[in-house]
Simulated scan of single mutants.
Amino acid sequence: MDGRDLPRPPRRVPADAGTLTQLQTTTPRTPDLPPRQPWVYGRFLAGFLVVLLIIAAGATAGWLFRAESLRINTGQVLESIGHGVVRVLATTCEGSGEASGVLLENGIVLTAASAVKTPLSIVIVTPDNQIRQANLLGTSADGVAVLRMIGQLEDEPIPLATADPDPKSELAQIGYTAAGQQRIQPVGTTERPRALSEVMNAAKLGGPVVDKYGQVVGLVAGDTVQAATIIGLAKLRAYTAPKPVGLTVEVGGKCARSRGPQSPVVPELQVASTPLAVEAQRMLGDYLTLENRHDFTALQAVYSKYRKKSMSPTRDRDSHQTSYFFDPKITGVSAYGADGAYARMTFNVLFSPDVKGAGGLNCRRFDQRYRLVREGGKLVMDGVEMVLPGQVCD
């Protein structure tokens, strides 16, 4: 047996070594990483996001500012230029006799031609009830009438805009109701217009379309509300130029009978609304409505038996065949007899300057007292007396 076959001696364990109870392995050592460098791309991305937020905030603020700049404050506009939007009343052979209008420089008034076809007399009435005669200078094919006011007014005229409005800018139309109340209504924008039928009545035809600055940028014209359109600024400037373009010169009417507006008349009650006063208001309103409609036969129903003897349909027709009564106000009501009344009323009458007794005038203001009696259970007109002599309207 050689030395290769001898058993190996046991491995010497140091005296201070612990007891090996399980197989132990060594853990590999991870090498140290180099220090982390700044994240340049992240810093760039964060800065880019901040810039985007700033731009977005600026764009939003700009959009809000632009949107606000295009809005119209209708209350402020009406307060600043309402004085220059007038009622146009006429007694005509063919026209409706009623429209709105706008007072421009040099006494020029624009309105709807449908109201003043073949007129015998025209007046304009301001919001504070000043009345001025007006003459028709001409009409356009698209329905605009150009009038010249006679006399002066202290109020400033309304300017025509120098340029068309922004297509997104809000606009409004100013006009009158049949009861003579001035109103302003938004009509959308040039880009997105509102249907005129939503805001119009016949008395508003001829009213101006204005921008947020109170400048005229258009005029509503048409024979009816359904046919109403907005005539643009360029055409209005042509019609009002020193040498007008697009106007046809018009002559006055020559009919023997002319009429004004046909809407019902309700006198303004300036006394306490007692049952007697309200009944007198209703009776006098019926009287004026029938006079304006020239229904002289029906008028007999509002007269007493006594008055019918002196005011026949023929006499009524001869006296009022070109008349239009407007702006009535009942200023006094008192009892008469057992169940009658005295009613004092002021009103204006528009008529042809060529009728007998007109003396070339076309409008007078009257102050009269009516004696009302009861027949068949209702008040009827028994007599009329003048309180003050008739005055020229303007």
Rank of each mutant, 00 (worst) to 15 (best):
G95V: 12
G95P: 07
S96R: 05
S96I: 11
S96A: 13
G97I: 08
G97S: 08
G97A: 09
E98M: 07
E98D: 12
E98K: 12
E98N: 12
S100P: 09
S100V: 14
G101D: 04
L103G: 10
L104S: 06
L104K: 02
L104F: 03
L104I: 04
L104Q: 07
E105L: 11
N106S: 14
N106I: 12
G107K: 08
G107H: 03
I108W: 00
I108Y: 03
V109S: 10
V109W: 12
L110P: 06
L110V: 13
T111P: 13
T111F: 03
T111M: 11
A112F: 05
A113D: 15
A113C: 14
S114Y: 04
A115L: 09
A115M: 14
A115W: 01
V116L: 11
V116R: 10
V116C: 14
K117G: 15
K117C: 03
T118V: 05
T118L: 06
T118F: 02
L120C: 02
S121W: 04
S121T: 14
S121E: 04
S121K: 14
S121I: 06
I122N: 00
V123W: 06
V123I: 15
V123E: 03
I124R: 01
I124E: 01
V125M: 05
V125L: 13
V125D: 01
V125R: 02
V125W: 02
